[in-house]
Nucleic acid binder design. Sequence first.
DNA 1: GTCTATAGCTGGATAGAC
DNA 2: GTCTATCCAGCTATAGAC
Lengths: 195, 195
Amino acid sequence: MTPAKGDWREARRQGARATLLATAWEMVREDGLAALSLRELARRAGITTPTVYAYFESKNAIFDAMFGEAAEAFAQTKVEPLDTADPHQNLVADATRFVEFCTSDVARYQLLFQHPLPGFRPSPQSYEPAVRAFELTRDELARNGVHDARHVDVWTALMTGLVDQQISNDPGGDRWSRLIDDVVRMFLAHCRNEP
Amino acid sequence: MTPAKGDWREARRQGARATLLATAWEMVREDGLAALSLRELARRAGITTPTVYAYFESKNAIFDAMFGEAAEAFAQTKVEPLDTADPHQNLVADATRFVEFCTSDVARYQLLFQHPLPGFRPSPQSYEPAVRAFELTRDELARNGVHDARHVDVWTALMTGLVDQQISNDPGGDRWSRLIDDVVRMFLAHCRNEP
DNA sequence: GTCTATAGCTGGATAGAC
DNA sequence: GTCTATCCAGCTATAGAC
C-alpha cells in the first residue's frame, strides 16, 4: 500500500498539473493553439518557466495531456443517454451535441480533429477515448439502418462541414448549426433510397 | 506615356516579386502557413533578408499577395465552361473542380477559406476574386432550381466537409472526394423534396 | 520543487554603407 | 536594390544553487 504521505504529494502534484492545463486551455482559447508559450503559461500560473518542466517534460507533453482531456470530454458527450426511443431523433440529438461540442471550444476542436501542430502526434493513450466515442456514433447510425461505410463517411463529412462553416463564417452564431435538422433528414432519406 | 526604361524596371521588379511569391508558396506547401519565415524565404531566393523588404513592406504584405493569387486561381477554376447541358452534371463537375482545387494545395485552401493566421486580414482587393467566384457557384445552384439561402448553406457545408475530411483523414487519397456523385444526388433530391 | 541565470536559437524589422 | 551588421523580442530547454 502507498503511504498516505505519498498520496498527499501525488494529489498535490496532480492538482498543480491540472492548474497548468486549465491555464493552457485559457491561453489557446484566447489566441489559438500555436500561441501557447511556456513562458506566458508559467507567468499566468504564478510560477517560473523551469518549474513547468517539473510537471511536464516538454511542450508537446502538455499538448498531449490537453489532447487526452479533449478526447475524454468528447467521449463524455456520448455517455449521457439520448432521450427518445426514436432513432432519427436520437441521431439529431447526437449531431446537435457534436456541433455544440465543437463550436463551443474551437481550439479543442482543432486539436482533436484537425492537425494544426506540426511535429505533434498524440500518444495512443490520449487518442483512445476519441476512437471509443467514434464507435458509439457508428452504433447510432446503425440503429438508423445506416451500415454502408460510404454512408458513414458522408455522415462525418456532413458533421465536419457544418462545424467548419459555423466556425469559419459565423463564429458565435447559428447559421449552420440550425441546419442540423434538415441535414439529418436529407442524410437519412438518402441512405434509405440508396442502400 | 511611361518611358520604355521604366517599363523594363517595372517588369524586372514584378518578376522578382513573382519569384519571391513562388518560393513562399513552396515553403508553405512543405511546412504549413505558420512556417513561412522571411530569413528562409530570402535564403531560398538567393537574396538577403532586408532585400525582401524592397519588394514587400512586411510579412503580412506577402500573405496578402499570396491570398490574392489564391483567390485569382479560385476564380479561374470557374471561368472554364462546364461541359454538359445537364445542370445536375454541371454541378457535379463544379463540385469536383472545387474539391480538386482545395485538396491539391492544402496551404492555399487554408489561407483562402480558413483563418489560421492570427493578425492577418486580406485586403479587399485580394478578397474580391473569391467573392466573384462564389457568386458563380450560386448561379450554378440556381440553374439546378436551388434558391433557398438555407440550401445554399447546406451546399457549402457539404463541400467544405468533403474537403476537410479528405485533407484531415485521407491526405492524398480519394476516400471522400469519390463521394461527390452521391452527395450531389443527395443534396438535389433534398432540395426538390423541401423547396 | 522552486528559483536565478543563461544557453542557444529563430523570428521580424531597421540603419546605413555602397 | 542590395548588402553587412545589428537591434530587440520571442521561444524551448537546461544548469545549478537552495
